[in-house]
């Protein structure tokens, strides 16, 4: 079973712990600027939104790469960048509609979320369960349940 990251902005407090855990796992330093997951703040609405790669099944970054440096981890479905093969051409960063694969000047390579091999650090560290790792076929379940719970007898329709 493949799993997907499910992010719930209404639960995010903007604390950056996910960025810290991600950057330590990938860069061996606490460095929010180099995290694969990023929190975006919208202070005028008091809203904080975590955002990262959704691991497209048909991944445009992977298709665009001229040197086949991006491959799929069959177990997790993650699209993985090989730092050895990447030549830093940045075509993938243009191809990705979501901006979730990014170039790093100091290494000359692109980086993106790789789901930490199926045990995402951001999920483990989030103090408010704003980032979950759930069955990829059921990312909508929690939201459906929420709406279902809002229904009452008044919404019942008796067929004629």
């Amino acid at each position: 079973m493949q799993k997907s990251l499910l992010m719930i902005p209404s639960k995010c407090t903007g604390c950056s712990q996910c960025e810290l855990a991600c950057s330590y796992a990938k860069e061996e330093a606490f460095n929010a600027a180099k995290s694969r997951i990023k929190i975006f703040d919208f202070p005028e609405k008091s809203r904080h939104v975590p955002y990262t790669c959704t691991q497209c099944a048909e991944a445009w970054c992977m298709k665009a790469c001229p040197v086949d440096a991006i491959s799929e981890d069959k177990k997790t479905g993650a699209k993985i960048v090989s730092a050895e093969l990447c030549v830093g051409c940045k075509v993938c960063t243009i191809a990705c509609p979501f901006g979730t694969i990014n170039y790093q000047q100091d290494t000359g390579k692109v980086v993106k979320c790789d789901l930490c091999g199926g045990d995402p650090e951001c999920v483990k560290i989030c103090p408010t369960e704003a980032i979950l790792y759930v069955n990829a076929d059921a990312t909508g379940d929690a939201r459906m349940r929420e709406w279902a719970a809002k229904s009452d007898e008044a919404s019942d329709v008796t067929p004629n």
Binding site: T13, G14, C15, H48, P127, T128
Partner: peptide, 8 residues
């Protein structure tokens, strides 16, 4: 509510 940096 909201968090400062690194605050759970």
């Amino acid at each position: 509510n909201a968090a400062c940096f690194g605050c759970p």
